[in-house]
Amino acid sequence: MNRTVTVQLVPWISNLLPLQTYSADSVPPVRAITDLDLMNMNSDYLSHSAAQRLDVYSSLSSEEQRKLQMKIAAETRASRKLDPSQHLHILYFDDHICVASKPSGILSVPGPRRNPSLAGLVHEVLSPSIDIDKMVVHRLDMDTSGIIVYALTEAALRILHDAFRNRQVKKVYQALLCGHVPMVSGIEVDIALERDPLHPPFMRVAQSRSSSSSVVHPAFHKFIDQAPKPSFTLVDVRSHEYLQHPGGRRLPVTRVELTPFTGRTHQLRVHTAALGYPILGDDIYGYLGEGDCGIPRSADAVHLEAQLHELGMPLCLHAEQLSFFHPFTGAPMLFQAKAPF
């Protein structure tokens, strides 16, 4: 991965401080799962729920079979072995932090199933004195690419957690949305989000409470019972573009810059879907996704999403920039990587 480093004096609060900027090229997504991968899959890596449904596969409806296939493909991807030479792209590290550019298609943290992850690669290569779980400052979804920072000491973890909690960190994402969003800047999305009681653990725009939570699996009740939380994202339109369909049609998409001011689960994915323009490749809140952001879409929009779905593109959401103060030197640092789409 090519990387450049620049240092320049910039106004920061009331003084001029040397801003360190680390820039990197895009990294390709991890190879998609093939039918051969699924045939050679080790069932030991499947979740209990997936294994149970696989045993009664023939009795499932066609829609239930499709959802199970997607679930198995996701769990298979999450369990694949990772190679530091292919999947670890470090922009910066010292004794306290490591900043990397995560490819789409791998986990940022091991999770409860202790799957291979980018955090695991960082731990393997840099050998910090702390456990992997104590390196986790923030997360990116498996299919989201881009900049992520890990702590290499417990002290750095505490300081960075405070910085994220106190909103002293700036994050900028780039995404491709289905359809052409009106060419305006500064679209403010300010809505409360909650867990979807019909499709846990996914999120949705907060709605009036009902008895629907009674159908939720007991393991999710503690999440469903939580009050809705405020969330805020600023959306800036960068450009209108077209993607070529194999059938010859030009399909409209919009490249946007997304700046989240809160950090809710799937916030950007739900916010863009709630605007009526889901992120291209979103298999949860986009076409045929099980998640429902709570906002209905028109028949024309669904038709366009179906055509874009046929392109087979991964989730087009990329953490383009991350800026924060170094936890020990206090130096302002900005990390950025080009989007792979």
Rank of each mutant, 00 (worst) to 15 (best):
R3G: 01
T4V: 01
V7F: 04
Q8R: 13
P11A: 13
T21S: 14
P29H: 06
A32Y: 02
T34K: 06
L38P: 05
L38G: 10
N40M: 09
M41E: 10
D44Y: 11
Y45N: 14
Y45A: 14
L46S: 03
L46I: 03
A51T: 02
S58I: 03
S62Q: 08
R66M: 14
R80F: 11
K81R: 12
L82V: 07
H87V: 11
I90N: 09
I90M: 14
F93K: 14
V99I: 10
G105Y: 10
L126I: 08
D131H: 11
D131N: 13
I132Q: 15
D143P: 01
T144V: 10
Y150Q: 04
L152K: 09
R158S: 08
R158D: 05
R158E: 11
L160D: 07
H161G: 03
K170V: 08
Y173M: 14
L176A: 09
V189F: 13
I191W: 11
M203V: 04
R204N: 09
V205S: 09
A206N: 12
S208F: 13
S212A: 15
S214A: 13
V215F: 08
K222F: 12
K222H: 15
S231D: 04
T233F: 08
Y242E: 15
Q244K: 07
P246G: 08
R249T: 04
T254M: 03
V256T: 00
V256P: 01
E257G: 02
T262E: 01
R264Q: 02
L268M: 00
T272E: 01
A273H: 00
L275F: 00
D282R: 04
D283Y: 00
I284C: 04
I284S: 00
G286D: 02
S298I: 02
A306C: 04
L317K: 07
E320G: 04
L322K: 05
P327R: 09
A331L: 13
A337V: 09
P340T: 08
